[in-house]
Every structure is written in C-alpha cells, then in structure tokens.
C-alpha cells in the first residue's frame, strides 16, 4: 500500500519536474528512476519505521495555515529587534520545555516548527523535553503557553 502510493507520488513528481509527457525513451528512463527510488525507500523503511498514519496528511493543511501566520508574526518581531535594538533589546534565554507528543514524527514536527519560527531555535531533544534558545524572553513565554505543543499533539492523534 505504502509502496503503491509512493510510486504514484514519485511518478507524478517526475512528470511535473521534467515536463516531458510524450517522448517514450525519456518516459522509460523516468520509470526506471522511479523504480530505483522506490527500491531505496523500501530499503530505508525496512530499517527505520517512522510512522504510518495517512490521515495526518489531511489534518496537515490546517496546521500549516496556523504555522504560517505564526512565522509571519515572529518575523516582524525579530525584524524589530534587528533594526531598533534600543527600543526592542534582545534578551537571549535558554529553557527546557516539555513536549507531549508520543511518536517520533510528532516530536520532529514540533521541533522543526520551533526552529522554523524565527526567534526560537530548538537545540536538543531528550525523551520528552526540548531545549529551546530564544532571542527574546517573551518568545519562550509564548511557547510555554503550549499552543503549538497542543496543536502538534492534536495533529498526530488518530481520530
């Protein structure tokens, strides 16, 4: 099932990227490269089994929408810190935050979201805590409220 879906996805990706739809030699080469990638990903999956809940993809766009708005707001905040250091002084802070995600994928999404948001960067993940460096203290306080944490947890839960 997984391999079939991945195969369809990869073929579509190849067609979009190359833009060749009619030349049969090129199509054959594309098929060959798709099969090769399938073989590699099958080999990877045999060793590291991450996660296999396909409904996550359906819930992802809503989270992405929220994340984009957060990234935008955080960008504005850091831009202020750069141009007006007098009025918006930086106060770097390091803190360990709890994370409530269970799966590896959920933890990865949470840590990556923290890093993607300017002003906060995650540097170490141990069992169920993530070490975060923030450029202003308020960013840490905002993360400690746990809205992002809850949203990622909701994202990974099967309904």
């Amino acid at each position: 099932m997984y391999l079939i879906l991945l195969g369809i996805g990869l073929s579509g990706f190849w067609l979009l990227l190359s833009g060749f739809w009619s030349n049969s030699l090129l199509l054959f080469l594309g098929l060959a490269s798709t099969l090769f990638s399938l073989y590699i990903s099958w080999r990877i999956r045999r060793q590291y089994r991450l996660y296999s809940d396909w409904s996550l993809i359906l819930r992802f766009p809503a989270y992405l929408h929220w994340l984009l708005i957060e990234v935008f707001k955080a960008n504005i905040a850091v831009v202020k810190n750069i141009w007006f250091p007098r009025h918006y002084p930086i106060s770097p802070t390091v803190k360990r935050l709890p994370m409530s995600q269970k799966s590896k994928l959920g933890k990865t999404i949470y840590a990556n979201s923290i890093t993607l948001t300017p002003g906060t960067v995650s540097f170490d993940i141990k069992d169920d805590g993530v070490l975060v460096h923030a450029i202003v203290e308020e960013a840490i306080v905002e993360l400690m409220d746990g809205e992002m944490n809850q949203r990622v947890s909701k994202l990974e839960q099967r309904k």
Binding site: V71, F72, V78, I82, I90, P92, P118, G119, V121, H133
Partner: peptide, 19 residues
Amino acid sequence: MTFPDFYARVHAVSIADTL
C-alpha cells in the same frame, strides 16, 4: 553582522531563510 552571539545570529539567518 550586528548580533553579538552565535546563537543570536541563527535567528537573523532564520528570517532570511523563511519569510
């Protein structure tokens, strides 16, 4: 250029990388 510390510079770069 202006941030005083390596970890602070990471944030500056992350602006340039995202938005």
